[in-house]
Amino acid sequence: MEIAVGYAFAWLVGKARRVTGRADAEVDRGLDAGMDRLHELISVKLGDDPTLQRAREEAASGLEEPSARTRQRLELALEDAAAQDAAFAAALARVVAELQAAGPVDIAADTGSSWAMGGGTASTGVVRPGGAGSGSAAAQHTGDATADGAGSRASTGVDYS
């Protein structure tokens, strides 16, 4: 359920960004469709559940992750729904498996600045050393990354080196 909650909240954050015009133009369409299916499944099942409404409010407020309390309550609500409805449990497991197969969704947004010196490394975005992993990655409104000194390295945005 923890994974389902994470994906559901990521969908809510994406929705909030689309509404405010902050969505990344290069969103992976297959992943986006899977996230839409997950949101629809959860929304239909939980309906007007106050915990789902609280998650929507937190996402709209700019949080990247739900509060610990909202996450816990949403996990419990989904566990309860799955325990009472085997078809829902199976559908939820299937959609989560599809999303996991699509790879990770790495997003860096509204980061601060970082500075590397003396051979260090600084990044204000998504770092996948050697292009490790798959799935979509996006960096939005990242801060400055500054390198100073021999061997120092800095990046901002998405770094696959």
Rank of each mutant, 00 (worst) to 15 (best):
S134Y: 14
P104Q: 12
A139L: 00
D49Q: 07
G103Q: 13
E98I: 02
G149V: 10
Y7M: 01
A82I: 02
E65L: 10
R56M: 04
A97R: 13
Y160G: 04
A154K: 06
E98F: 05
A122V: 02
T142D: 00
T142K: 01
A89C: 03
A145S: 15
Q53F: 01
P50D: 14
A137N: 12
A83V: 00
L41E: 13
R29W: 02
S61I: 04
A93C: 02
S43F: 03
L74R: 09
A60S: 12
L52F: 13
E98T: 07
A55M: 11
L63H: 14
V5M: 06
A108C: 06
D80I: 01
R73W: 08
G151D: 05
A90I: 03
T70N: 09
A25E: 14
D144K: 09
L76H: 09
V126G: 08
R153L: 06
A59Y: 12
G21P: 07
G62K: 08
S155Y: 09
A16D: 11
A109T: 13
A145R: 09
R153I: 00
A89P: 03
W11L: 01
S152G: 11
G120K: 07
A25R: 09
E2T: 05
A147I: 06
A68G: 06
S114P: 06
G119T: 10
D49N: 14
G151S: 03
G47A: 04
H39Q: 12
D48N: 12
E2G: 05
G151H: 02
T111W: 03
L52H: 08
D49V: 00
E79W: 05
A91Q: 14
A90F: 07
A93L: 08
Q140P: 00
G143F: 04
S113G: 12
G112R: 07
L92A: 04
P50Q: 12
L12K: 09
A23F: 03
F88A: 06
A116Q: 10
A77K: 08
A83Y: 06
S134M: 06
R56I: 05
E65N: 06
R128P: 03
E40W: 07
S152R: 10
D49M: 01
R37G: 04
V127F: 10
Q84Y: 05
G103M: 07
T51H: 03
R56E: 15
R128W: 00
E26L: 08
T156K: 00
G6Q: 14
T121E: 11
D32W: 07
G149C: 05
Q53L: 13
S134P: 01
D49L: 02
R22I: 00
A10S: 12
K45S: 11
G21K: 09
R73Y: 10
A137Y: 06
P129Y: 11
A132P: 05
D148M: 08
E26I: 00
I107V: 15
R71K: 14
A139M: 01
